Simulated assay, not measured.
Amino acid sequence: MSVNSITLVGRAGRDPEVRYFESGTVVANLTLAVNRRSRDDEPDWFNLEIWGKQAQVAADYVRKGSLLGIIGSFKLDRWTDKATGEERSKPVVRVDRLELLGSKRDAEAGAFSGGGNYGGGAPSEEEVPF
């Protein structure tokens, strides 16, 4: 049995780079900064690759600083550098599921924008289940 699954929550390091293909396929690439437990440590950076409808969502709604949750799998992109002829590689997380958790501006304004609650605003006491 083999398992290749990665779950991350972090902030977009830049706006997505989006490419549209003649076939209609869309791909978005961006970086994700994930903080470590200690605030003194530098964040870990991940390269994300998002395809299809979720890539279009990323293109439309993700901006630098957006808080994202992702589920995906690890892959290693390999290529030959055209200038030097050297073999190169880069670790990439291919995103299977993208959750928009809010933007940095939302957090600073104190707005609640939990997964899927795109209307914003904190839930009333009647909506809280406990």
Rank of each mutant, 00 (worst) to 15 (best):
63 R>W: 05
18 V>N: 01
25 T>Y: 08
38 S>Q: 13
101 L>K: 07
89 S>Q: 15
39 R>S: 14
69 G>R: 05
25 T>H: 13
71 I>M: 14
34 V>P: 04
44 D>S: 15
21 F>I: 01
83 A>V: 14
49 E>L: 12
37 R>L: 15
35 N>T: 04
19 R>V: 00
80 T>G: 00
102 G>S: 11
22 E>Y: 08
5 S>G: 09
73 S>I: 02
50 I>P: 02
55 A>M: 02
4 N>V: 06
87 E>Y: 06
57 V>H: 07
67 L>A: 15
39 R>Y: 01
66 S>G: 15
51 W>G: 00
95 V>M: 03
58 A>C: 13
28 A>K: 00
86 E>T: 01
85 G>R: 01
41 D>E: 15
59 A>G: 02
94 R>T: 11
27 V>H: 00
18 V>F: 06
24 G>D: 07
78 R>E: 10
18 V>R: 03
37 R>K: 12
63 R>H: 08
60 D>L: 06
54 Q>M: 13
7 T>F: 10
44 D>C: 13
92 V>S: 03
43 P>N: 10
41 D>S: 12
7 T>Y: 11
24 G>R: 04
44 D>G: 07
99 E>S: 11
56 Q>M: 09
50 I>C: 07
25 T>Q: 14
98 L>T: 07
50 I>R: 01
54 Q>A: 15
101 L>S: 05
99 E>T: 08
39 R>H: 11
62 V>C: 06
77 D>V: 08
44 D>W: 11
97 R>V: 11
81 D>N: 15
17 E>A: 06
38 S>D: 15
37 R>Q: 15
12 A>F: 07
61 Y>D: 05
96 D>V: 03
88 R>S: 06
89 S>E: 14
12 A>N: 05
21 F>Q: 01
21 F>P: 00
14 R>D: 12
49 E>P: 03
24 G>H: 05
44 D>N: 13
32 L>P: 05
38 S>G: 09
16 P>V: 02
49 E>F: 08
45 W>G: 06
69 G>M: 08
91 P>E: 13
73 S>V: 03
20 Y>T: 12
19 R>C: 01
36 R>T: 08
92 V>Q: 04
33 A>R: 09
63 R>T: 07
